[in-house]
Amino acid sequence: MDYKYIEQLIESYFSCTTTLQEEQILRSFFSQEDVPGHLAQYADLFNYETGAKAETLGEDFDERMMAQIEATELKPMQAKAHIVKLTTRHIAPFFKAAAVVAMALTIGRAAEHAIGEQETEENSHVVAVDPYIKSSDVRQAIHVKDVSQAEMKATNDSIINLTREDEIQ
């Protein structure tokens, strides 16, 4: 038998001028049992090439892969959990707003209180300057001061309670 064609193909193979089809012919040729002695040295190479294509993943791969894919399909549920979290974050500004209102009220009251005190001082000043002032007037001034302090405390308490309630909520 003449092996010139095969010899030529081998030469072309090593100079990278064979087509895919010719390379397949070489692999088929070497896969047969009786390869002539002078070409036998290349049998292992071409047979390795044929054999290496049979290398595949294990049978359990698909199962594991599909489980992984299905696990990611469940992700939208995790996204829902995120939305819940976002809602909590949405509420936070209201707490802040409540705190700001509480502070504004406190400061407002404190300012009012300070003005009231000033007024009282002025009144007492009047008392000192004018010896004829009625004592009931002084009492009234003191009463006003007391009332405003009591009022102030009550408001503060209710603000604190409100803030606590907000926090509990």
């Binding site: 290496a52 294509k53 290398e55 595949t56 993943l57 791969f61 698909d62 892969m65 599909m66």
Partner: peptide
Amino acid sequence: DFKHDILPLKNIIFRTAL
């Protein structure tokens, strides 16, 4: 489709990566 379009690439990817 995963099973139909992507999964069949597994063995050529495997051999190349290997």
